[in-house]
Write a protein that binds this DNA or RNA. Structure first.
Lengths: 154, 154
DNA sequence: TATTGTTATACTCTATAACTATA
DNA sequence: TATAGTTATAGAGTATAACAATA
């Protein structure tokens, strides 16, 4: 039921011209990001971390005592949307909230030993996964790509 | 009230270290995409087009008679989520659905004269906007970036 | 039996307004 | 008065299941 006719590889049947969209940086950046995120979701599911959870934990991991407000500013997350994430991470015993040394309104976010241990593994997994998700790129191409992307949003 | 102390530029107050995240391709691609999309939303609002609407219209514009199924496959949109978009574009008089020449189940999507006219302008605006949104990049850097991104998702 | 287009629906993500307590 | 954290809630985006018409 798929061995006669001409010789179409497998799915095919979509000779749609997307050449204009492919000239757009925004289109390409979004498609590439979604492609990598797809692999990320698979491999990091073992840690119970989605991309946002991972980003939040990573910043806390490398910035013990950081406040929610700082997290929001550095990751472009709106404060109301961070609340649930923080509560979830705290409930899992990955972080703890301690009084801020100088600002009585704020709370410092600290990784627990369990959180540090998890993130050490998770970050290794993430770094590996990215190479697999961009296997058509050489190491230097990957480095160039990162530098060019940062020129856009930083 | 901001002229004493040391000499902090303006907002500051966020010495958060995100150097690890900045090594990740997925993180950088997502941040860059969101940055460009932000500008896109501003400039294309005049046409009543959001990024998805624009992509759909662009594919129809360059592929008159394309089917919904082909659109979904080429833009990674799920069929149920395309229905509303198509209906909206048709209601605005930008496209029309005609019987498919060979497949009685399908409908061919065609741009109206109004749709063609709109997209000619919209695509010019989009191409200009992308240059502004990546003004720190040279033309050749922009070209390199597009090529590298396509190696990830294509 | 498989596929196109569709409906209904649920889940997630993102955004805005407003409150409290501290500064 | 302004800011950190929070609550409630609305809106947009994304996901699966299932159906009618046609292949």
């Amino acid at each position: 039921m798929a061995t006669s006719k001409k010789a179409a590889p497998a799915p095919a049947a979509q000779p749609v011209d997307t050449s204009y969209l492919q000239t757009l940086l925004g289109y390409n950046a979004r498609r590439a990001a979604l492609s990598i995120i797809g692999v990320f979701l698979e491999r990091l599911a073992a840690y119970g971390l989605k991309p946002v959870d991972f980003s939040v934990m990573s910043v806390i991991h490398h910035n013990p005592g950081v406040t929610s407000r700082q997290l929001c500013a550095s990751l472009a997350i709106l404060p109301p949307n961070l609340v649930g994430l923080i509560q979830s991470l705290e409930a899992r015993g990955l972080i703890e909230r301690l009084p801020h040394p100088t600002d009585g309104r704020a709370l410092g976010l600290h990784p627990t030993a369990k959180g540090v241990s998890l993130m050490q593994q998770a970050e290794l997994t993430a770094s590996e996964l990215e190479i697999d998700a961009s296997s058509k790129l050489s190491a230097s191409q990957r480095q160039t790509l990162v530098q060019l992307l940062q020129k856009i949003y930083l």
